[in-house]
Amino acid sequence: MDNALIRGLRLVGRLTVDGIWQIGATTRFMGMVLLRSGMTFRRFRLLMDEIYFAGALSLIIIIVSGLFVGLVLGLQGYETLKRYGSAEAVGTLVALSLVRELGPVVSALLFASRAGSAMTAEIGIMKSTEQLSAMEMMAVDPFSRVISPMFWGGFLSMPLLAAIFSATGIFGGYLITVVVIGVDAGAFWSQMQASVDLREDILNGVIKSIVFGAAVTAIALFEGYDAPPTAEGVSHAVTNTVVTSALAVLALDFVLTAFMFTGV
């Protein structure tokens, strides 16, 4: 009875301390990554490799999923709007939902599972096989040689991936509604252009994708760096990366949407 109470309190205490430690460690880690990113931009090769890895290799999955999301949005939107006799507004529907929400969010989720998990695994295994320590022994700073380039590669790739996702999605919506179903092409584009605003919608979407890119890459790198140096530890860290970044993206999306698209 008494024991259970003490154990419960101890659990709360440990969770609090762990939580605070986690916040502090993440902040310190990100500070190190940012402070030592000088080499990333001096040795451009490192950054190129990471953009290739995080961005170019994600192109296929982003384009294919963007196309299918656009196709589905077009079909569903058409079926619903048809009832109200405003099938032409389907362009507006597809463009606004992609540019504002689905583009940044879905591409961040895909990015987390495609590139984020791989980053975590790479750093976790480098740590468990003591490659990071070996680098330090050779007076090579693992932060500026490995981790910073990864961060900047992911940070720069994510907005481009989100833009590609939205653009292919809108193309998919165009394909299904205009080419297959036969909605008027002029009305499709003009209604879309009348309601999508450059600053309100597109710029805010880009800002969202930048925030998501930074969050996902930071989580992936920290989980890898923080992983216990065992096979099990690395596998847990990879799972954690995908779960945590998915939750972080959705929570951040809510916060950003509340700030950007409400009011007047």
Partner: peptide
């Protein structure tokens, strides 16, 4: 491709 995507969004989809 990313820059073209952004440009398409800005010019074709938006009302720049």
């Amino acid at each position: 491709a990313g820059l073209i995507g952004l440009l398409v969004l800005a010019l074709k989809v938006g009302n720049a």
